[in-house]
Design a protein around this nucleic acid. Structure first.
Lengths: 154, 154
DNA sequence: AGTGAAACCGCACTTTG
DNA sequence: CAAAGTGCGGTTTCACT
């Protein structure tokens, strides 16, 4: 992973686009204080370098009918490479899995799941524990999303 | 929150744009199987209704120098409305906080934090426990991001 | 600063429930 | 009848040279 240090302009571009990626080149250039041309060249470069990896929309999960968020903390029973590989594949195959981290601490993995409702979550949960021999799964049901997917500091 | 049921076309539009929001109207329309005009009208409507809430870029956190992710599980000591309100404000004021959920279970809140490194995280941690009287904070350090911010099922 | 392309949006139908 | 689709075309705005 190449890691060219980003200067103030680059960071400023990234901050502006995280907030609103629909900005036109003209508005972006103005906002960061560069000429359109210079700004465009930097943007192109940031994309090429993989600093900017793509563009998505922010969606209203309630409106999409995916109003339930659950964090599942998992302790595994097996630790062979083959088993772990199979476990990962199995988890990633579930489209309800939004985040998936290997962590340090009392648990081995942290899985963020979105679902339509409790029934739907239970389906995911059963699949999770049915397909993999796990030591423990502790689920934390989200009661309220106070903040979700805020911008990465830049 | 009004929740008009979304039909197959709406969902298809949302799926396509979550994957790549830089799609042109022509390509989007073609992908979902609508005329450009109809597709544009639906898109405008989805935005107006707040189903699509905006547009962001996906960034490479390593390249941005924010390579550390930590989940902090918090149990609070106070439960008065005023205290909770102050607590929320205090947490949201920290730009390193990416997600912030009120949860059910052994803990009250789940805070996802990104930081440059352990030193930087410790700064955030000290601020968190310094500004608020908390019962417990348990931190899970992410060792590896296997998946991060995958698309919401639609 | 120029150019080709894309977004935007009204209009006149047609289609479907 | 109402709601949503299609295709056309002109103006404005944008990306990129």
């Amino acid at each position: 992973m190449t890691t060219r240090p980003l200067d103030t302009f680059d960071k400023s571009i990234i901050r502006a686009l995280q907030r609103d990626a629909s900005l036109s080149q003209r508005d972006l250039a103005e906002k960061v204080g560069l000429s359109q041309n210079a700004c465009w060249r930097r943007l192109t470069r940031l994309r090429e370098e993989g600093v900017i990896m793509g563009q998505t929309i922010r969606v209203n999960m309630q409106a999409l009918g995916q109003g339930l968020t659950v964090y599942a903390m998992v302790r595994t029973r097996h630790h062979s490479l083959a088993w772990l590989e199979k476990f990962r594949k199995s988890v990633l195959a579930i489209e309800n899995v939004v985040d998936f981290y290997r962590i340090a601490g009392d648990y081995d993995y942290m899985i963020k799941i979105v679902a339509r409702d409790m029934n739907d979550f239970d389906r995911v949960y059963q699949k999770l524990i049915g397909d993999n021999e796990l030591e423990t799964v502790t689920s934390y049901i989200a009661m309220e999303a106070i903040a979700n997917g805020r911008d990465i500091p830049a």
